[in-house]
Simulated assay, not measured.
Amino acid sequence: MIQVTAYRNKGNLYAFEMSGHAESVSEGYDLVCAGASAVSFGAVNAVIKLCSIEPEITQAGKEGGYLKVKLPDHLDVETHQKAAFLLEGMMVSLETIVRDYGQYIMISDK
């Protein structure tokens, strides 16, 4: 199962962590895993390009299965809002995947 944790401070998204594998079908054909990966990496790439920042990114393992992204601590308000808005869009897309494939992916907030 893919587990996504959204980290918030006073309701504002500042980081997320994704771990696990959906294992809904055999490796290489798993649309849940591919969808979650595409949504998360697309959002991170958008943050980097559109906000001109480098978030703290941690990935583990050759076979994937772990991604943690944290916005830098000392961003100006406008840049932080823009980056958080992009990540919130990612969360909406992930929630859509959960709605249809909740047995393979779950989201929680901290």
Score class of each variant (00 low, 15 high):
Glu54Asn: 15
Met18Phe: 03
Ser37Val: 00
Val39Arg: 01
Leu71Asn: 03
Asp30Phe: 01
Leu13Gln: 10
Val4Ser: 02
Asp76Phe: 08
Ile2Lys: 00
Tyr104Glu: 09
Ser108Tyr: 09
Asn12Phe: 08
Glu27Ser: 10
Lys68Glu: 03
Ile48Trp: 05
Glu95Trp: 04
Gln81Cys: 11
Glu56Ile: 13
Phe41Lys: 06
Leu67Pro: 06
Val32Arg: 12
Val25Pro: 00
Lys49Asn: 11
Thr5Gln: 11
Ala22Thr: 06
Gly11Ser: 10
Val44Gly: 00
Met91Asp: 09
Phe85Val: 08
Phe16Leu: 04
Val98Tyr: 07
Glu78Leu: 15
Lys68Trp: 01
His21Ser: 01
Glu23Phe: 08
Asp73Ser: 13
His80Ile: 00
Leu71Lys: 07
Ile48Tyr: 05
Pro55Arg: 05
Gly102Gln: 01
Gly102Phe: 02
Ala46Asp: 09
Met91Thr: 12
Cys51Ala: 14
Val4Leu: 12
Gly102Met: 07
Glu23Met: 11
Gly11Ala: 08
Lys68Thr: 00
Ala6Leu: 15
Lys82Ile: 07
Ala22Tyr: 05
Glu78Ile: 14
Cys33Lys: 03
His21Trp: 03
Leu87Cys: 04
Asp73Tyr: 13
Phe16Trp: 03
His80Lys: 15
Met90Ile: 04
Glu56Tyr: 07
Phe41Met: 09
Val25Gly: 04
Arg99Lys: 14
Gln3Cys: 09
Ser26Leu: 13
Cys51Ile: 09
Lys70Asp: 02
Gly61Met: 03
Ala60Asn: 13
Val77Ile: 14
Glu63Gln: 12
Leu94Gln: 03
Gly20Gln: 06
Met18Pro: 01
Ala83Leu: 15
Glu95Val: 09
Asn9Ile: 11
Ser108Asn: 14
Asp30Thr: 02
Phe41Gln: 09
Ala36Gly: 08
Ala83Ile: 10
Leu86Asp: 00
Ala22Met: 06
Pro72Cys: 10
Ala34Trp: 02
His21Val: 03
Arg8Thr: 14
Asp100Val: 13
Asp73Thr: 05
Asn9Ser: 11
Arg99Cys: 06
Gly11Arg: 06
Met91Gly: 06
Lys70Tyr: 00
Thr5Glu: 11
Lys49Ser: 14
Val92Asn: 07
Gly20Arg: 07
Ala38Leu: 11
Val39Glu: 06
Glu23Gly: 06
Arg8Trp: 01
Ala22Gln: 07
Ser19Tyr: 02
Ala15Phe: 01
Glu78Phe: 14
Ile105Leu: 07
Gly89Trp: 08
Val69Tyr: 04
Gly35Asn: 06
Ala38His: 02
Lys82Ser: 13
Asn9Glu: 14
Asn9Pro: 01
Pro55Gly: 08
Asp73Gly: 09
Pro55His: 03
Gln59His: 05
Tyr66Ala: 00
Gln103Lys: 14
Glu88Met: 10
